[in-house]
Design a protein around this nucleic acid. Structure first.
Lengths: 213, 213
DNA sequence: TATTGATTTAAACATTTGATTAAATCAATA
DNA sequence: TATTGATTTAATCAAATGTTTAAATCAATA
């Protein structure tokens, strides 16, 4: 039985109506970790941002690393959660899947613009720790989506299309800080572009799948 | 006159044949910063990796932050240096430019696979510091490349095509650690795919530019 | 050889930071 | 009201880390 369980058992007190202390800490941790990355985040930052003191943070989560791990797993699942259920749905036509994935992904990322850059760079810095924590391996490799693409274009590795789709959807969010800093983009244009891309990318991907090379 | 200048003036001694101490430090800094990011890098790591002692590192570069800044400017210029000269060449046809950018970029990134993730995430963590240090603003916005795209497809914002091209080229390198950790990719497949993409992406982009929506 | 500047060695400094502790306080409840 | 568990307060610890210092050593040169 974990410390959290102990607390949850007794959590019938004042904060049952509003958010529990544990959740306040997690919410602050999501914010600060995502903003600054693991190494640059101080537990004191999180405590301050959550409005809860440092002692309790360590009491609930034992260590900065354990708290980070909890948040990371959430974030990884959020990042893959959009694509996997759709990719594995055997009742949807390829064209519909592409549209769904693109639209849902862009909507998710418009709400959480720094999700991809956070996950990609933190996983890179600690690869071993998160191996297979995505559950994306077989769920993607043997997905119905991959099979549908293979059927349509047997001569090209289907990963090409997956990477292109994800690249066109996700890359703008990753490059945004740089492009913004470089003066190429501003927030207003960015929003407009990403909404346009919900319609453009599926058309582009479909045409790539039709293309005879 | 900076400290570096003082040293360079007197640098007619033993290390004129092999690499100077300053360069050894920078080389180690490139490696360690790129691998672990700014916050997770300790100056002691860099000193150790360079085979040169900590005191001299601070003597040459004054501080971790100043050393980092030197490296970052290099990296940013490397990342944009491939695309800007080609984009601004007024003697090249659009089709040729697309092929050149894709091929050169993939070759660069095969040599420096973690360049994009490093630059994007560090710029994000310290946006203010690197604003306009790319010199990419007008060089990209008013580039001949952008004008050529506008001419070909006046109804769509040319940034769409730039983002798609960069996304298809760069994203695989950013996602690689995650896909590898998830078991979707391995190094061998990755290399093969990226070499195939040198031919595929230009064809795809051209077909996107032809497409009537 | 004597000098000069580059580099090393070893130590120390101040600060930051993750983590812990013990006592006090607060809120709910039996 | 007395009890119980959640939370705060305030202080402290130990380790890590950026930076500095002074003296010693080394390599080239005049």
């Amino acid at each position: 039985m974990s410390l959290q369980d102990v607390h949850n058992m007794a959590k019938k007190t004042k904060e049952e109506l509003d958010v529990s202390a544990e959740e306040k800490i997690k919410e602050a941790a999501r914010k600060v970790f995502t903003l600054k990355g693991y190494a640059a985040t101080r537990t004191r930052d999180i405590a301050e941002a959550s409005g809860i003191n440092l002692a309790l943070l360590n009491y609930y989560f034992r260590s900065k690393e354990k708290l980070f791990h909890v948040i990371m797993i959430e974030k990884i699942q959020k990042l893959f959660g959009v694509i996997i259920p759709i990719a594995n749905d055997t009742n949807l036509a390829l064209e519909i899947k592409i549209e769904l994935i693109v639209t849902n992904y862009i909507d998710l990322l418009l709400e959480h613009p720094d999700l991809p850059l956070f996950v990609f760079s933190e996983v890179r810095n600690n690869t071993e720790q998160f191996i297979h924590s995505t559950n994306a391996d077989n769920l993607l490799r043997n997905s119905s989506l991959i099979k549908q693409i293979e059927l349509k274009k047997p001569d090209i590795n289907p990963l090409h299309f997956l990477m292109s789709l994800l690249g066109m959807v996700v890359f703008p969010f990753i490059g945004k800080p740089v492009f913004t800093a470089a003066g190429i983009l501003d927030e207003e244009i960015f929003q407009k572009l990403m909404n346009e891309r919900k319609a453009l990318i599926p058309k582009w991907i479909k045409s790539m799948l039709e293309l005879e090379l």
